[in-house]
Design a protein around this nucleic acid. Structure first.
Lengths: 203, 203
DNA sequence: GCCTTTTGACTAACTGGTTAGTAAGTACTG
DNA sequence: CAGTACTTACTAACCAGTTAGTCAAAAGGC
């Protein structure tokens, strides 16, 4: 109703977000300029400035755009069984990331600017809280179901996010997907050795 | 012998490294310019270019300078008892970092540029291999001493480094030392629940 | 007098952002 | 349906500031 589903959706904002994404893939954040976004957009730099007053405004909007997409994919995980759900969430966070390595690079660049750009920090913080809430909720569920030990779910969620962020950082710095696989395995070990109740007596 | 220990050591290279360090603390890597380094150096920008042809040359030298310092502090850990030694190493990697948060920020910025600057990547890789070697060696020692399970020491070292890098990344992005403490605790949990042999039968 | 070091003045390229102006579409009015 | 007003979307030209890097000349130590 509101938006007509034309082919290639002529909404300028959406187009600029897509152009920013492509420019980011090709040049990285450090070399991202309005001009390069404009080239991807196929219009002049002033056209960009017509829609976004400053570069920072555009980048803040881009973070909203991209983190919203990410949260939607995380939201898709619908299994209710705690152990399986936690596994699927960790897959989303670490395995799926392998298909967007260039985005992972750009995101680490932007994350490293969080100390200087409050708009960035706020958005990354909000996103982190969302994911942590998903994790601690499923961990709490596992505790109630008796499949997880009675640990501090908040801490366990932070621990898993630390492993996730470590794997992502290392994948970018060392340019190797294997870092994501290592992190995935480490997360699994944490779940098995710290969270899961010991059933060795049931043999 | 080789270097005369004058007060304020008049060695230009050393002075420029120190100036770079200060400029990095004050402006961060993204806003680090030759001009700003020169201001800290107290000389002109051309004076910097006399000692280093390009900005990249200078930054590569700076990474050598700073990572060498870091490796020296890690090398100081002299305890031989595996469990205690691993604890002290993790303290060096996570607890001591709290005193150099601004450096942690700059280092994450530089790490995020590894995909674009091979000189950076090489140095971070070499540094990581050094620390991982220290970790896997002490883990192997613990296995031989019978205090650690017979795990893959190489993997365990990578797992711990993943937690370390995760803690550091999160400390920078969210501007909170607590992320380092959480990572330290997570590393401890990993050591206790995955590495340490289970002595519950001895009580 | 020579060699290292440093300076000041410079350049060419690029940065984000501003401006006036244009063209097309939409909405209101009588 | 014609005329007016306004909005959206854009362009070309331009600006002031910053960047890394160059070069001839000068300063300073031995």
């Amino acid at each position: 109703m509101a938006d007509s589903p034309n082919r290639t959706a002529a909404d300028p904002n959406e187009e600029i977000m897509r152009a920013t994404y492509r420019a980011l893939q090709e040049h990285g954040y450090a070399d991202l300029t309005i001009k390069r976004i404009a080239e991807e957009y196929g219009k002049s730099t002033a056209a960009i400035h017509y829609h976004y007053d400053t570069k920072d405004d555009l980048l803040a909007a881009f973070l909203d755009y991209i983190l919203d997409q990410f949260q939607n994919t995380v939201h898709e995980v619908e299994t209710t069984d705690p152990e399986q759900r936690l596994d699927l969430l960790l897959d989303k966070l670490l395995v799926d990331a392998q298909d967007h390595l260039d985005l992972l690079v750009a995101m680490l660049e932007m994350r490293s600017q969080a100390p200087y750009k409050e708009a960035f920090r706020e958005r990354f913080q909000q996103n982190d809280e969302y994911v942590r809430y998903m994790l601690s909720t499923v961990i709490d569920q596992g505790i109630q179901d008796g499949v997880f030990n009675d640990v501090d779910a908040e801490h366990a969620a932070r621990a898993l996010m630390t492993i996730v962020d470590g794997g992502r950082t290392r994948a970018v710095v060392f340019n190797e997907e294997a870092s994501l696989a290592t992190a995935r395995q480490t997360a699994e070990e944490y779940v098995t050795a710290v969270l899961a109740v010991d059933q060795s007596g049931d043999g």
